[in-house]
Every structure is written in structure tokens, then in C-alpha cells.
């Protein structure tokens, strides 16, 4: 179980990263001011608080993933810290899985801190914290786990800067997969249709984790939505981590 040692160390590394504290601090500030912005609307202040806060938790989690997760492996290769670690009796996949788990732990803590703050603040402002609201935050976290696995794969394959950019692009396309699916309706080009179809199935579909709209309007979310998102997260992340393990196994350090 060497990956647990790597995971705990990665967690400690990322928790001591200044970016994390800045991001969590800024997101809490945004959640606080969202109430003030909400007061500009008529009777919609709590809805705007929910909308703004969930968006903030989502975006700042993605920023963490992009700026910390996407350079996690490459930084180890560049700084050569990997040399003393991989010369220990450990498989390379354990290292990859450990790094992934460690980063997920950090994402969990940051999402948890932001989520707890938001729910408490929302409750104090007179809102009702429903299970689906909590479920929405859990779904955002699962989406971050998928993005993290993509970031880890890219971090093995490319330099830190390229992997940061590509992870960000992947996230934005992954959030627009419904538009991607709709492109063939407006184009006769077979190649374009073929390409958009491939992208639709290969790129992660982050819409599976996005129930912010429903949470904002206090709609009931069927349990199948959670189950499907969970299974999608497990399968997609496993494939990404498997590919990352294959890539690092082939790599001469």
C-alpha cells in the first residue's frame, strides 16, 4: 500500500501550497459578497447567493485542479524528487495513484471548507439547506475528481505549462459537450461531424456533475443522477489513471 504514503505526502505538499490558501480565501470572500449582490435583486437574494456560491465552489475547485494537479507529476520529474522515490520498491502505478489520491484529498478538504462555509452562511441568511444542495456540492467534487485524473494524465505526458493549458481547455470543452453534440445539426461536413462525435465520447462530460441549476431552484434530483455521475467518475478516472500509469511506465526518467 505504498500509494497511501505517496497520497498522504501529496496531500501535505498541496495543503502547504500558498495557492490553495489564496483560492479558498478568495472563494469565501466571493460567497460573502454574493449576498450583497443578491440584495440588488428583488426577492431573489437567496437564489443568487446559492447560484453564486455553487459557481464559486465549482470554479475555484477547477482552478486548484488546473494549477496544482496539472503540474503535480511533471514537477516531480523536473525537480528530480522522483529519483529517490521510484528507486524504492514501488510500482510506478502506485506513485500515480498515490499522487491522484493525495490531490483528491486536497480537493475534498477545499470543497468541504467552502461547502461548509456556504451552507452555514446560507442557513444564517434564512435559507434551507436541503440534501440536494449538499448533493450538488458532492457532485461538483466528483467532477473535480474526473478533471484531476485528466490533469494527472496530461502531467505525465507533457510539460507543466502545456498540461495546465490543455487541462483548462479540456474542462471548458467538457462543460460544453451538449453543444459539441449539436454541431452536426448545423454542418454538412462529414469530417467535422466525425471529429465532434469522437470528441464528445472521448472528452469528459462535466455536465453529468452539474446540477447547480436544479439546486438553485430547489428542484428534486432523482437518485439515478447521483449514481450515474458516480459510476461515470469511477470509470473515466480509472481509464485516465490507467493511461497515465502506462505512460509513466514507458518513460525513461
Amino acid at each position: 500500500m505504498k500509494f497511501t504514503i505517496i497520497a498522504l505526502n501529496t496531500f501535505r505538499e498541496t495543503m502547504r501550497d500558498r495557492i490553495l490558501r489564496v483560492i479558498v480565501g478568495v472563494s469565501i470572500f466571493v460567497i460573502v459578497i454574493s449576498k450583497i449582490i443578491g440584495e440588488l435583486s428583488i426577492g431573489q437574494d437567496l437564489k443568487i447567493l446559492v447560484d453564486f456560491s455553487l459557481g464559486t465552489i465549482d470554479i475555484f475547485g477547477v482552478v486548484l485542479c488546473i494549477f496544482i494537479g496539472a503540474s503535480l507529476i511533471q514537477r516531480e520529474i523536473d525537480k528530480k524528487t522522483l529519483y529517490t522515490i521510484l528507486s524504492c520498491p514501488m510500482n510506478r502505478w502506485e506513485f500515480i495513484f498515490g499522487k491522484y489520491l493525495g490531490m483528491c484529498m486536497t480537493l475534498f478538504v477545499s470543497t468541504f471548507v467552502m461547502g461548509i462555509f456556504f451552507c452555514s452562511y446560507y442557513f444564517l441568511m434564512g435559507g434551507q439547506v436541503s440534501l440536494d444542495l449538499v448533493g450538488c456540492i458532492v457532485m461538483l467534487f466528483m467532477g473535480l475528481m474526473v478533471l484531476n485524473s485528466v490533469a494527472i494524465l496530461l502531467s505525465v505526458l507533457t510539460s507543466s505549462s502545456v498540461s495546465i493549458i490543455v487541462t483548462a481547455i479540456t474542462f471548458f470543452i467538457g462543460r460544453s459537450t451538449y453543444h459539441l453534440k449539436a454541431i452536426p445539426q448545423f454542418s454538412d461536413s462529414a469530417t467535422l461531424n466525425y471529429l465532434t462525435n469522437i470528441m464528445y465520447y472521448i472528452l469528459p462530460n462535466f455536465n453529468n456533475f452539474d446540477i447547480k441549476e436544479e439546486a438553485t431552484h430547489a428542484l428534486t434530483i432523482p437518485s439515478e443522477v447521483y449514481l450515474y455521475a458516480f459510476l461515470y467518475m469511477v470509470v473515466y478516472s480509472s481509464v485516465m489513471l490507467y493511461l497515465a500509469s502506462l505512460a509513466i511506465n514507458k518513460r525513461n526518467l
Binding site: N9, E13, K80, T81, Y83, T84, S87, C88, P89, M90
Partner: peptide, 14 residues
């Protein structure tokens, strides 16, 4: 790798 202890050139640590 259980048998070896390795010191790389200019060792790097966290």
C-alpha cells in the same frame, strides 16, 4: 530495489 540504497547526483527533496 529492496537491496539498494540510492543517492542521486545533487539529491532533490520535497
Amino acid at each position: 530495489r529492496n537491496k539498494i540504497g540510492f543517492l542521486p547526483e545533487n539529491p532533490y527533496f520535497y
